[in-house]
């Protein structure tokens, strides 16, 4: 019994460290790495509780991960195979036609995924860069600079933040139509260049950092922007990373905004394109391998960024904690 449980635990622990460890304890190793093992040795004699714990964890891990595995496997299946063996994780025969179609290697151009991908990259890069800069600029001003109307601005910001996205569908359509930019890149980008929640996060961060260093810089005669750019922003790295991840994820996954402000197929992003593919507007038949492949392509960037940055995150958060 013990020999069967131990390898599972080890694999689990390794997976956590490589993939997406969020805890500072295990990245630093040391004491936390040893303690559970000592604990484990004691618990090995009487372990119905541990066994039950692992049973539940593994059952749920299967429920949470199996759909993703099926998604990957299905994208390499043929249409009939996907329908005949929906549960199998091994494509037989191994079929690349869904992927070829996605990368434009076939004559079928009804699903222009490369166009979608290009648009997604464009909006994500522009929106993320803009939000990181403008949100921190505004957050800094609201936290540190004394000017008339600051309180009112902050109150407006809080009010705007509490408006749920689903309420904004009609308003967003109205304004882009009114401004005559419906179905353009401007309509897709301009409204998302700033987000209230990002400003709020940056303001909270600057509120928590001591003013002494920037005051010294300003005593030396540096301008407000100069102080912000070369003294304050470098200190704000942990929060800037947070903001980058949030903006990346938010703009890559954005759906409703692009849905209501565009209509041309050339302006579809991965998300709006996938939505039209899935809801049956493009092509005929179930096309499940193609849909799974497109969904996978949509998931990969966010997953990669998220897991890659998490470790960064821990380090950043700790540094911030020491300074603050």
């Amino acid at each position: 019994m013990t020999t069967t449980t131990v390898p599972t635990q080890d694999r689990g622990a390794q997976g956590g460290n490589e993939g997406a460890d969020t805890s500072p304890g295990s990245t630093t190793g040391g004491p936390t790495g040893i303690e559970p093992r000592a604990d484990g040795r004691h618990g090995r004699n009487v372990n119905p509780k541990r066994l039950a714990g692992y049973a539940v964890l593994i059952l749920f891990a299967i429920i949470y991960l199996y759909p993703f595995l099926i998604q990957i496997a299905t994208s390499f299946k043929s249409d009939p195979e996907a329908a005949a063996h929906p549960l199998s994780l091994i494509p037989n025969p191994f079929d690349l036609s869904a992927w070829k179609r996605m990368f434009g290697l076939t004559s079928d151009t009804s699903v222009p995924i490369m166009t979608w991908l290009g648009n997604s990259v464009l909006v994500t890069v522009v929106i993320t860069a803009s939000r990181v800069f403008l949100d921190s600029l505004a957050g800094y001003a609201l936290s540190r600079l004394h000017f008339r109307g600051r309180r009112l601005m902050f109150a407006v910001l809080l009010a705007v933040m509490s408006v749920p996205g689903v309420v904004l569908l009609v308003p967003k359509f109205l304004i882009v139509t009114y401004l005559g930019i419906f179905d353009t890149y401007s309509a897709m980008l301009l409204p998302l260049l700033v987000d209230a929640a990002g400003i709020f996060i940056m303001k909270q961060f600057f509120d928590s950092v001591s003013v002494s260093i920037e005051e010294a810089a300003r005593m030396d005669g540096a301008s407000v922007f100069r102080t912000f750019w070369s003294v304050v922003l470098p200190m704000a790295r942990p929060s800037l990373i947070t903001l980058t991840i949030l903006s990346f994820q938010g703009s890559w996954n954005e759906f409703t905004h692009f849905l209501v402000v565009t209509q041309s197929p050339e302006l579809k992003t991965m998300i709006t394109g996938l939505a039209s593919l899935t809801s049956g507007e493009l092509g005929s038949g179930t096309q499940f391998p193609l849909k799974m492949g497109a969904a996978l392509l949509t998931t990969i960037p966010v997953a990669l960024i998220f897991f890659a940055f998490q470790r960064h995150f821990v380090r950043g958060a700790n540094e911030g904690g020491e300074k603050g």
């Binding site: 599972t8 635990q9 080890d10 694999r11 689990g12 622990a13 997976g15 956590g16 460290n17 993939g19 997406a20 460890d21 969020t22 805890s23 295990s26 559970p36 604990d39 484990g40 618990g43 541990r50 714990g53 692992y54 964890l57 749920f60 891990a61 949470y64 991960l65 993703f68 994820q249 890559w252 996954n253 759906f255 998300i271 996938l274 939505a275 899935t278 969904a295 996978l296 949509t298 998931t299 966010v302 997953a303 998220f306 897991f307």
Partner: peptide, 22 residues
């Protein structure tokens, strides 16, 4: 007393990160 908790935490959390459309 359970090992590999960070792996499981990530596994359970993963669906929350991905796009609702996907």
């Amino acid at each position: 007393f359970l090992r590999g908790r960070s792996f499981f935490r990530t596994a359970f959390y993963f669906p929350s990160v991905t796009s609702s459309i996907a």
